[in-house]
Amino acid sequence: MSSTPATAVSDRLSRKLSRNVRERAIELVLFLAASVSVLTTLGIIWILLVESYHFFEHVPLWDFLTDTMWTPLFSEPRYGILPLLLGTVTTSLVALAVAVPLGTVIAIFISEFASPRVREVVKPFLELLGGVPTIVYGYFALTVVSPVLQYFFPSLPGFSMLAAGLVMGIAIVPYISSLSEDAMRAVPMSLREGAYAMGSTRFQTAVRVVLPAAISGVLSAYILGISRAVGETMIVAVAAGMQPNFTMNPAEPAQTISAYIVQVAMGDLPHGSIGYQSIFAAGLSLMVLTLFFNVVGHLIRRRYREAY
């Protein structure tokens, strides 16, 4: 190396340095891109808290949580979140009553009963079903499901939580079935083989061995279904009616938290008015609700996780 001119060495070193600097710069850019998601979360929390804070300067928190009337656009406004909350809970319960049994049965069927060829067809089909825009489901609930239900129950109104909830259930089935099926697929073959060797039937293997082994994944699929149902907007906005209603009777029309946000946003509320702030308070309630279910889901996963 002694014959190499000194400048060449320093040249190579400087090239290496610039290369290092460039590498670190690129890493920094990529890191910034990854932190956009954290910024999004912070932005959501910040905007909800700030606008809700202004809202609660006018409305006592206690009234917000206990008043049974939600009439923010009337001349004598009342701000009780309970009617909206009951609407959200009721439609979600109806949806889950449809989606949990259907989704679980479909998941067990695809994972344990169906031949590979059937699975190849059914899984993409379920994905397609999950990709249908929710506004289309809302249209379906209003123009098909409501009239059909009214045919069987003539006293049912044209807008009802029942129709919206049923269709919401159908919309959630793909999520629940595909996640539950993934969890069941992940159960090792040896467990099934053990069960079959003991003389179990398919049904016994599925329900007594595979399902319990996959229960943490299946439960988190349910939790995801719940948070979808709670946050679902367009189906209830179209088909459940738009009046807040303090009831848990699914045969009545009602408004959910998300539908209220849509209703206000469709009007022309000035920035900074109490009506404008009220949708952020409603959004905060929605976030708290979904956060609650996410935490519960996390705890359930930890509690029931089986490691193989």
Partner: peptide
Amino acid sequence: NLAGVPSIVYGLLALGV
């Protein structure tokens, strides 16, 4: 967690920000 945030909440974020 962001994947589980209801889409309408993104709407509120966009409205405010």
